[in-house]
Write a protein that binds this DNA or RNA. Sequence first.
DNA 1: TGGCTTTGTGCTCACGATAAACAAATGAAA
DNA 2: TTTCATTTGTTTATCGTGAGCACAAAGCCA
Lengths: 413, 413
Amino acid sequence: MDAVTHHRNRSDRGRSALGPALQLVHTGRAPTRAVLTAELGVTRATAGAVAAELQALGLITVDSRPTGSSDGSQGRPSHRLGVEPDGPVVLAAQVHADGFRAALVGLGGTVVATAPGCGDVGADPGQVLREVVDAGAELLRRTGRRCVGAGLAVPSAVAEPEGTALNPLHVAWPPGAPVREVFSACLADAGVTGPAPGSVAVGYAANDVNLGALAEHRHGAGRGARHLLCVATGHRGVGGALVLGGRLHTGSSGLALEVGHLTVDPQGRPCHCGSRGCLDVETDPLAFLEAAGRDAGPEVSLLDQARDLLRTCYPGDFAVRAAAHRLIDRLGQGLASLVNILNPDRVILGGLHRELLRADEERLRAVVADRSLWGRSGEVPVLACTLDHNSLVGAAEMAWQPVLDDPLLLAEV
Amino acid sequence: MDAVTHHRNRSDRGRSALGPALQLVHTGRAPTRAVLTAELGVTRATAGAVAAELQALGLITVDSRPTGSSDGSQGRPSHRLGVEPDGPVVLAAQVHADGFRAALVGLGGTVVATAPGCGDVGADPGQVLREVVDAGAELLRRTGRRCVGAGLAVPSAVAEPEGTALNPLHVAWPPGAPVREVFSACLADAGVTGPAPGSVAVGYAANDVNLGALAEHRHGAGRGARHLLCVATGHRGVGGALVLGGRLHTGSSGLALEVGHLTVDPQGRPCHCGSRGCLDVETDPLAFLEAAGRDAGPEVSLLDQARDLLRTCYPGDFAVRAAAHRLIDRLGQGLASLVNILNPDRVILGGLHRELLRADEERLRAVVADRSLWGRSGEVPVLACTLDHNSLVGAAEMAWQPVLDDPLLLAEV
DNA sequence: TGGCTTTGTGCTCACGATAAACAAATGAAA
DNA sequence: TTTCATTTGTTTATCGTGAGCACAAAGCCA
């Protein structure tokens, strides 16, 4: 009853290099055991032991006989490392304006199976989350894979540590809905398992743009960035996210990067927040449609309408071109403000913002460079996101995180 | 020639708990050995060994017989830990609009000796830095203390890793001046020593507001904050800083928190950046003086003029009150934007902004709360900075950092 | 075939931290 | 005062992790 009180403060479990090693393989930064050795900064013996243990846990593959190995260099070829394709998976879920999506995602961001569900999302979070969790559980049953966690992406800021959706604008949920709690309850009801054998999964929930940023950082356009800023607009409003040192920066209560009310046009349109010219009302799909003089129809999502309009009519149609330029300028102003505040080494755009970037990269980059201190002293890389369902993959990343931090969780009694 | 290549990647030197322990004592979070044991999460034996080693290095004091110890609790009283008052010091330097300041600072943020120097700062960084370093070296000679590093605070963003002053607005330096290089050269010329015995100090240089934030976080109003945002205005323009997890967030190239061009008033005054209503031109001392209808005289600094005016005429004089309210509202808008982006758990204001906070706390807090998402769902603590020379102390913190990370540097051959 | 180069593996060893028993220093109760 | 409970410091034995080193293995290249 004496020393026992001490050694529980920090995670005493686990070889210390096990987690970092798994992350390196997971993100593809350790294709061979030799690279793993160098990246970890340990001896070959240690790296070998670590790789063997991860292999024994069923998380990675170690290919000792790389058939047709001819990477040019001489010397003994190194064992190739990879993610175990038949290893455990996590349940990734996403709720968006047009329904939900459930998927099983393995290490390396591999989407193993997907189950989309369409239709309106009602006012009761419990109902949708039950549907999406059940869909995920069905996937688990069908594939017979071991599940080691679950993550949920929602179109709202999620307050920490409460786990409540503060501003679920695109869905009819009540503000403050306890999404994480409800998600966890659904997981327990469906019998979804967590990292430790026989345990029940705890539900992780976070904002979809944040999770998209996390996914892009690990498997997409953000790989290798130390300070990654993501900005995206899906349906209404604008979301932002920041990844610092491989981790999401969610602020002290989960509400960081709520960038929608940055002023980007002093003479702009009035916003419900009381100000005018906010990023939210100046650069979202509705703003684009209205600036182009088009009416927003209810049949397809605003993002799809705006994207189609931009793709089909962009350089030619005068109104569309003017609208695009208007949004690009406003977006550039907002990005410049964010760059001045956060000084990221990379910026990634999603949703309609990605389309705007593709429409005129030069113009957007010029605005950002012109309006930011760093832009004037160097170049700020502004890129399009590359993953198809980055929010979903990000939800999976969040669910994988405990295992990535301590792979031995999988072997615990 | 094989394994030798490995074990230099990470700092293999040193008991791993030595640095964290010193930081705990340094920041006052470990007043006794028992608390140190708990904070480190190690056994009493380990904590004892660590404390003894730090004492042997001459960094801390371990008082085994606390005279008049009556902290109420029963049980054997714990040894009191403290910073060694006669231990090593660092050379802290600051350049500002009205001259420079040099000081010797010990652990715990204790200013041991100070040497101010007044007058205009010329266009040659080398000249001022030589003067300030010489003044610091003179202090070292007079006191006979061991010097283990040197840090410099400048009124400009400092680009990393170049160490150049990008926008030295308050001094006549050319933009891009290589301050760190020049500072290091002056230190070498003056024979200022570094952490390792016999070594020459390398110069660290950073923005003054950033360093002030670091100092407030460790020894001032920011103690215990996990995500600390500081905003301050000294002479012209506004500076910001963010401390995350005990470390300054300087962004990928040192230019984070350049908050001066946030739009805080769409109908505001034009700014040289091309926009209008920027935080820089709306909330700095000159803005206040002009809003109050006063002419800025050249005799004393703008900050002093504005502060005096606010302190003497605030609630009574109508023009002054209106001007203060105008600035408070603009500042609140800017803080709200930053709170939405960074979601800090504490905000600290310096310079004239501190005076504005003191003039009407309620008004400022109300604006921040009303305009920020987090403010509406909770309360954002907005506080005044408490340290007298926080930039100077912050420069010392920066210089101490290598030792705080690895105290054994002091004992190296 | 025999260098050369690079990587994997099997040992020993050093060292940091734990665990556990014991000693010391206080307050509270008898 | 004596005794006990409580809390902390100290000592010793022990263990686990990773380093260091020697050697084997597996490819290039001549």
